[in-house]
């Protein structure tokens, strides 16, 4: 089957290049695997139907083609009509049966995909913002709740339930390799299950148009073995790292006396605003700015100074800091492991 699929990619679509990692057809979870299977089932059915219809159309046209310009219309052809009636009836019957097959498999797959559940799942709250993702790992003990942004860690092989909501407009949560998408609707809260089977880093993306920076509203899903996940979680629970390095302290000062503090939280400091992403463990993330830039000193500095260049319309204002303040700030942010 695998070979056939590869063949299909090559033959049917022509040599259209390599398989992409970020794809709904390279499943990394049981649900996306089911969907992928259903996709290919419908694909083959469709291909067969397409070929049949095209052949019949081409043959039907070619067999009666005439080149005369002034052709009088055929007025009657009872025998031909009778045969056509039979053929059309057969074709309609086959169509109906095929549709039933598609419907049945679709409903069965739908039930399987939706049926994922667990008594004691990993729970993640996802809140969509213009244009970033807030992820919370709630804990009955409030100070153990993990708040992070744009990077979601999940354990491999365990069902995860996502409680979705939106802070402003409609967003849609989607990791193609794992599961189909789910809209985050303002005024609605819903639960949504998924599971990752293969460890890896999967790209996620907002799928519902949500304004100027819809294009850059990405996130990363890190699927890792349970123990690594637990380590990550306990690391994230801690307040921000305290350093005695003077440049870090200087950067902390810059952070707390400039506009950063109006929007961001760094637990363990006075900064506690919820407007923008929580930065307590910023340095532990792979990407910044909604999975747009890699988390390095250079891109971080560029992002702070002029976010509108990277993401025009984003809500973060430009911060034209003097160079040494900026250096210190970046050093501080890079220290937030």
């Amino acid at each position: 089957m695998k070979a056939l699929r590869t063949l299909a990619w090559i033959i049917v679509f022509g040599l259209l290049g390599c398989q992409s990692n970020h794809s709904s057809l390279s499943a990394a979870g049981p649900q996306s695997k089911n969907i992928e299977w259903l996709y290919w089932l419908i694909f083959w059915i469709c291909l067969a139907v397409f070929v049949l219809v095209m052949v019949f159309f081409a043959h039907g046209t070619a067999r009666t083609k005439v080149d005369e310009q002034e052709m009088a219309p055929v007025m009657e052809n009872p025998e031909g009509d009778r045969r056509a009636r039979v053929a059309v009836s057969v074709a309609v019957t086959v169509t109906v049966i095929t549709l039933f097959v598609v419907l049945a498999f679709s409903i069965v797959t739908g039930n399987t995909v939706e049926g994922l559940s667990s008594k004691n799942p990993v729970t993640i709250q996802i809140i969509g913002h213009q244009w970033w993702w807030e992820a919370r790992y709630p804990n009955p003990q409030a100070d153990l709740t993990v708040v992070t942004a744009n990077e979601i860690h999940v354990p491999v092989g365990l069902p995860v339930v996502v409680l979705t909501s939106s802070a402003d407009v409609i967003h849609s949560f989607w990791v193609p390799n794992i599961q189909g998408k789910r809209d985050l609707l303002p005024g609605y809260q819903s639960a949504f299950w998924f599971q990752a089977d293969k460890p890896g880093i999967y790209h996620g993306q907002c799928a519902e148009f949500c304004g100027e920076q819809h294009a850059h509203m990405g996130f990363e899903m890190v699927a890792e073995p349970v123990d690594k996940f637990q380590n990550w979680l306990s690391q994230q629970r801690k307040p921000s790292a305290q350093s005695t390095d003077p440049s870090v302290l200087r950067g902390r000062e810059v952070f707390l006396t400039h506009s950063c503090v109006l929007c961001h939280t760094v637990r363990g400091t006075d900064a506690g605003s919820k407007v923008g992403p929580d930065l307590t463990h910023l340095a532990s993330r792979r990407m910044i700015a909604g999975a747009t830039l890699s988390n390095e000193s250079g891109s971080l500095a560029g992002w702070i100074t002029d976010p509108q260049r990277v993401k025009p319309g984003v809500l973060m204002p430009a911060n034209p800091l003097p160079p040494d303040d900026l250096d210190a700030l970046v050093t501080y942010l890079r220290s937030l492991q």
Binding site: T257, S259, V261, L262, P317
Partner: peptide
């Protein structure tokens, strides 16, 4: 001053 950028 210093917190809210002028344009905001």
């Amino acid at each position: 001053r210093g917190r809210i950028p002028a344009n905001q």
